[in-house]
Structures are given as C-alpha cells and as structure tokens.
Design a protein around this nucleic acid. Structure first.
Length: 452
DNA sequence: CTAGCCTTGACT
DNA sequence: AGTCAAGGCTAG
C-alpha cells in the first residue's frame, strides 16, 4: 500500500511534507528537520546559537510571552522555552561542532515522516467517511459583500476601539495558563487533561497553544453581565417599559461576537494573516463560532433542560420553545440534538479549542490571499485534534464523529444565520452593533473598505 | 542578534 | 552521486 510512497517521493510530496508545514515554535514556514523536529530556519539558528554559546536569557514579563513569526525576536527566554517545550533536542547540538554527516536522530526523523504519512491517510479516511455519511453538503451562507469588522481588526494597538468593546479587553494578561481558564460556572469540570495531569495524557503542543488563546470565561461573563445591566438601567430611566428579553439577547449575542473577534484577533496563526484575509475568514465563520460557543458551554457545563447563558444564568428550554415559531423551534431542536451528540462523545474543552480554529481557518473561503497558509493551519489543527482523540480514546471513529458534529454545526449555523437575517429585516431590531452589521453585511461594504 | 544562504560529510 | 541535517558565514 504505502510501499511506493517511501521510495518514489515526488517533488509534490515533498512540498506537502515540508513546504506546507508550520514551525511549532513560531508558525513560520518549515525548512526541514532540525534538532529533533520540523522547524523553520530561524528557530533552528536561534536554538543552535543558544545552546552552542550557552546563552542565558531572562523574561521581563511573566515567562509566557507570545512566540509567533512577528514577535519571536521580542523575548528569547520564552522562545527558547517554547523550543524545548515543543521538543527540540539539546543533544542534537554537537559539542565538538563537527559539520555534516548524520546523528542518532536520523531514524527518528524517518519514523516521524512515516507517522505523518499515516496520519495523512487517516485524515483522508475520516474525511471521506464524513462525505459519504452526509449526503447534502451544508448550504453556503448568504452572500456577503463585506462588513466593517474594522472595529476589531485594525492593527495593534486599536486606534479606535469598537464602542462596544470595553477598553480593557485588548490588554488582558497574555500569560494565563490553561489551568486558570476554568469554566467555573459549574462546580465539576467534565474532564481536563492539562499538562500537569499525572495520568500522562500528552497534550499536543499546538493544543496547549489553542487553550492559551481561549478567553477567560469568568472575565467574559462579568463583562457581558455589566453591559447588560447597563442596558437595562438605560431603558429603565428613559422609558417606562423595561427592555425586551429579545433585545437583551441581541446585545448578549453582539457582545459574544465582539469577544470572538477579539479572540481571533489575538490568536496564534490568525495574527499572521493580512487584515483583509482576517475579515474574510471571520465573515465566513462568525455564526459558526457563535453557535459553537453556545453549544460548547452547554456541553461542558450545561444542564439537560436548561440553556446556560454566557452570563451564568440558566433559562428553561421549555420557556423558549413554547414561544418560538416553527422555524426557530426546529433550529433549537437541532441544536439540542447536536449538544446531545457531543455529550455522548464526551467532547472536552481541548477539543472545542481545536474546533474553533478548524472553523476559523477554512481554506474554502473565497478570494483569500494566503490560501496556502490557511490550508496548512487547518491541516495542523486537524492533525493535533486527531492525535489528541487517538491518545485519549484509541478509537479513530471518534475523530470522524467529531468532524461530523462540526459539519452539522456548520449547516445549522447557516440556517440560523438566514433565519436571523430574515427576522432582522422584518423586525428591524438591534441596530448599530456588530451582530446587525454581520447580518446586514451586504449593505455595508463601504465600511469594510475603511480598514484597507 | 537575527535569519537566509552556504558548506560539509555520513548515510543511502 | 544524491540527500539532508548538522555547523558556518554575513548582510542588516
């Protein structure tokens, strides 16, 4: 089966192996195996200099600086830490500085290549099983022409923050370890394979990176709660009637969207994209990410009969369904089915963190400049998710089932988006915010151009 | 210091 | 002879 793959390696294959891979330290293009694994040329050189010259660095922050292509020069301490963390080998740097030849890692590189080939085949298998199990492909989202995501996607630092983005949000401490990112709404987390887990389940480095990008749930909760209270007060003082629960929900969704944009904007890999590509990706995925946020909260901390909101409040599902129209009702039911499916799979926070990136880095989005990069990020994410699901459950089927859930989420979000759009047009609720901007996308092309 | 390009040499 | 991961060199 794989017999000829090892010998007759075409140039094309090599591009797939090396050219498209991304450095696990900084995300730059990989140039080959260096000191134990595939890395870019610059991290290879950095690692060599550091070890050869026995350099000692110190971090002026909290030893958790972001290390990516644009910021790798900023903190050599954290860069070196990351080199070690992802598995670069000190022993591969030669004490005698002998040039050329081979070292003891040769066989390891060979095994790694074989493993990657195998993984690629597994991915293909999972993809094709997904295709055959889901006959109708998810309908494409309504045609967008652009929107003024400029509120969140301008270059760092934000010159003019979105009026709804609290000023502190861009200055959250970057050094939060996954352990502080607990979903502390409910007492018992379903599962957590943190790196400190003595059980020994290894978390792929990329997954650690994704978890680090996850926003702090508690901070978000208090921020959005405050915003909602503010709105309620505003209504109480300006008119006799209190604000409707619908408009509060819209504000909540709008705030969640802002946090999604903020999450993306500060995330590993995404930062490397041009603003125009960032906008296209977010434009294509916002409703999926929003839905995933609701669904994952429900799966991780929720209660069967109640919908858990970002504010920590719980709403009886029956209260919602009895007021919903037929379309909304079927959407809610499909959402519930998806939650149940994910509960059965015992999807965890690590997997949701991966899935968010999987959704965001969609290489099928039209007219992106950096499609190659987006493709390779998606491949890396799929690889990390596959590795994780294999190590935690030993069943390949679980990975395919997770992908199936993602696919269901995509089609459900597309339907929800259309539904909200029609509601939005007819009722003209919730104006002047990011949510309505997204829904009105086709009309606000001019705003999008402002950030070019 | 950084990072892209160059040279080397054991292994196939 | 070709491959490719070591170390080396050097502009910026």
């Amino acid at each position: 089966m794989f017999a000829d793959a090892t010998h007759s390696k075409t140039k094309n294959d090599e591009c797939l192996d090396v050219g498209l891979e991304l450095c696990p330290v900084c995300g730059d293009k990989v140039s080959g195996y260096h000191y134990g694994l595939l890395t870019c040329e610059s991290c290879k050189g950095f690692f060599k200099r550091t070890v050869q010259n026995n350099k000692k660095y110190t971090c002026v922050e909290h030893q958790a600086c972001t290390v990516d292509k644009t910021q790798r020069k900023r903190c050599p301490f954290c860069r070196f830490q990351k080199c070690l963390h992802v598995g670069m080998k000190l022993e591969a740097v030669r004490a005698d500085r002998m040039r050329g030849g081979r070292n003891m890692f040769g066989p390891m590189y060979k095994r790694d290549r074989a493993l990657k080939e195998q993984r690629k085949a597994l991915l293909q298998a999972a993809r094709s099983s997904l295709k055959s199990s889901l006959p109708p492909p998810p309908p494409p989202p309504p045609p967008h022409r652009g929107f003024s995501l400029s509120c969140g996607l301008q270059a760092d630092p934000l010159p003019q923050p979105h009026p709804l983005l609290p000023p502190s949000s861009s200055r959250l401490p970057q050094h939060q370890s996954p352990s502080v990112l607990d979903w502390s709404v409910k007492a018992e987390p379903r599962s957590s394979f943190t790196s400190s887990d003595p059980g020994g389940l290894r978390l792929p480095p990329l997954m650690m990176e994704f978890l680090r990008c996850d926003p702090d749930e508690l901070q978000l909760q208090s921020r959005i709660t405050a915003r909602l209270q503010q709105e309620q007060q505003r209504h109480a003082s300006s008119s006799s009637s209190s604000s409707s629960s619908c408009s509060l929900l819209c504000i909540m969704a709008d705030q969640m969207l802002c946090s999604i944009v903020e999450w993306a904007r500060t995330s590993f890999f995404f930062k490397q994209l041009q603003v125009s590509d960032q906008m296209k990706l977010l434009h294509h995925s916002w409703s999926q990410l929003l839905l995933l946020d609701v669904v994952s909260r429900q799966v991780l901390c929720g209660n069967e009969s109640r919908l858990l909101l970002i504010t920590g409040q719980e709403v009886e599902l029956s209260d919602i369904t009895c007021r919903a129209g037929p379309t909304a009702l079927s959407l809610i039911q499909r959402g519930q089915q998806l939650v149940e499916k994910l509960l059965k799979l015992k999807a965890d926070r690590q997997e949701f963190a991966c899935i968010k990136f999987l959704i965001l880095f969609n290489p099928d989005v039209e007219d992106v400049v950096d499609r190659g990069f987006i493709e390779s990020v998606q491949e890396q994410v799929e690889g990390a998710l596959l590795e994780y699901t294999l190590s935690s459950s030993q069943v390949l089927g679980r990975f395919a089932l997770l992908l199936q859930c993602v696919s269901e989420l995509q089609s459900l979000s597309s339907l929800t988006e259309s539904y909200l759009h029609s509601r939005h047009l007819s009722a003209r609720v919730c104006c002047n915010n990011l949510l309505s901007e997204m829904l009105h996308a086709r009309q606000s092309w001019t705003g999008a151009l402002a950030c070019a």
